[in-house]
Design a binder for these strands. Sequence first.
RNA 1: GUGGUUUUAGCUCAGUUGGUUAGAGCGCCUGAUUGUGGUUCAGGAGGUCGUGGGUUCGAGCCCCAUAUUCCACCCCA
Length: 453
Amino acid sequence: MKPGIPKGTRDFSPVEVARRTYIFDTIKTVFRKFGYQPIETPTMENLSTLTGKYGEEGDQLIFKILNSGDYLAKADEQKLSARNSKLVTFQISEKALRYDLTVPFARYVVMHQNDIAMPFKRYQVQPVWRADRPQKGRYREFYQCDVDVVGSESLLNEAEFICIYDEALSNLGLKDFTIKINNRKILSGIADIIGKPELIVDMTVAIDKLDKIGYDGVTKELAEKGFTATDIEKLRPFIELSGTNTDKLDVMKQALAASEIGKKGIEEIETIFEYLSSFELNNAKVELDITLARGLNYYTGAIFEVKSNEVQMGSIGGGGRYDDLTGMFGLKGVTGAGISFGADRIYDVMLELNLFPDSATVSTQVLITNFDKLAEKYALPVVAKLRKEGISSELYPASAKLQKQMKYADAKNIPFVVLIGDEEMKSGKLTLKNMHSGDQEQLDIDEIIAKLK
RNA sequence: GUGGUUUUAGCUCAGUUGGUUAGAGCGCCUGAUUGUGGUUCAGGAGGUCGUGGGUUCGAGCCCCAUAUUCCACCCCA
């Protein structure tokens, strides 16, 4: 049969794994620095844990797992004959691959509520699966790197998320990226004012197109979606929103004066900015963007999204606050907030910008050549000693032609080669070749170790 | 889920209105060089043209189906 892998999945070769590890390590280091601790959850969850958490579209993107055994035997006859897959899903599948890390985390918190100390700050780096159609920066299997805190209402958490984004992405070498921030309460406030909460998504989508289709285009689209002339007049300050973050806040304060929830949203954003003023950011630009809605329907406060300004790519991170997530699993009154890094997209961005250091790909530091059986025997304690000293080394496993062995070292990017032949064995001075410069020198084993350490 | 696109040597890709034996570059192997890679030279191996049907005297090329790649929409990391 012809080998292949499922659509939207990928193999990772040594160089790619090294680079991905570099990304994960960089991000995890920052997570730990901010006081977060790692957890892991199973690859599969009960299907009932996941359904209904991501909206109707999200439910369709969940990879379901067929029950073991004869999964059709117990299925309802009538539902089966109806040939409607939605009817039989729960009869033939009770497990699914995790769709994100936030819902499993909420489940974890509820199940372990007696063991964890609040506020609980956790990070989690694991793959997730979505039955989406693949395209640029979109995979069916990809890694998320999440930090979430539960049991803390403080907006300091939100401010620190911005710091985490800034530090991690800056450490990875990204020079120009924007952290967009919005607040669900502001969106609710706008809906309050025009009295059409059900159209809030159409509204944000339309306003988002301002720079593409202009003010008239936006109003035209709004009218098509069912907004009256009075509505549009009330929306005017939001559509024309521009300038600095403080400019925007000033305008909105007036426009949302009549909405309690809207005012609360603005207040929250201001508090976050206030916290932020005590921290110094490296490369991140923070931008208030009221068109940021995000599909996940459980956000209740701040909403974040991160985009690179150097590369055309979907968002490389996102998150927000959700007051009622664990409520779905029966634990009321526990607030949570978190953000996620899309490691695979960050990888694609870094690749395009050539940001991976070469050092991330060096593995073996020295290759010992293998001339013949006698030299091999002589080399065994040498390679053992090098390894004992912590130097990655390998002995070529056959007495092949030297040319072949040198080519191997070259292909594997091994920086040093030790040659051991008759003369070296006689004198105890081994030949150390620097593959980069081509220089060679005769050294005893201790001198080589000192040189490579 | 909707619309489009890609698929030919290990890799990146040519391949004329359908016409004999399908090409190039890079890589790989062998030798020049029995103890020296990355440069050079000579030679060599490697293809069911994504898969399955169809049209035709004849298909890499045309038609249908299907898989796959990438892209846009929707949504999202």
